[in-house]
């Protein structure tokens, strides 16, 4: 089975560098986008298995990207984890309602974050994993 592909959408080059290293070390392929417009284009081209999305982006808000991704037939079931510096009190519910599977405030705990990534990647149809087998 080929490597799962993760798209990180974030405008901070340092974060991209650090997180990419972490994800690659865990056996994932990583592609990046740094603004809202190119993010959708990259997603359409690369068809990732998981998207890690920042909310504050140049050229458009993360919520807008989330909405556009949900509108792409290839990506309608692709899980999205939001990783943002914004206050979860204001944004977590909104992100979950818009279809994200998890919300992390920066900086996330590595262990928790990777657990969420693994869960999201094993979970393309929402209800199938409600039962522990």
């Amino acid at each position: 089975m080929s490597e799962k592909k993760i798209l990180i959408i974030d405008d901070d080059q340092h974060l991209l560098l650090g997180l990419t290293a972490r994800l690659k070390a865990n056996g994932y392929a990583v592609v990046c986008a740094t603004d809202a417009v190119s993010a959708v284009a990259v997603a359409r081209k690369e068809v990732p298995d998981l998207v890690i999305l920042d909310l504050g982006l140049p050229a458009g808000d993360g919520f807008l990207v989330l909405e556009r991704l949900r509108g792409l037939t290839d990506l309608v079931a692709t899980p999205v984890i939001v990783l943002s510096a914004r206050d979860p009190a204001d944004n977590e519910k909104r992100a979950m309602d818009a279809g994200a599977v998890a919300f992390f405030q920066k900086p996330p705990d590595n262990h928790e974050f990777l657990t969420a990534v693994r869960q999201a990647l094993g979970e393309t149809i929402a209800l199938s994993t409600f039962l522990k087998t």
Binding site: D12, L17, G18, G56, A85, P107, N110
Partner: peptide, 27 residues
């Protein structure tokens, strides 16, 4: 304050990732 904390979070996250990456022997 939310702007400040937002702006603090971004570099903090980078530092966190770099530090843990090195600490966990990724490099």
């Amino acid at each position: 304050l939310s702007h400040v904390s937002h702006e603090l979070c971004t570099p903090l996250t980078a530092i966190y990732f770099f530090t843990t990456n090195v600490l966990d022997g990724l490099l």
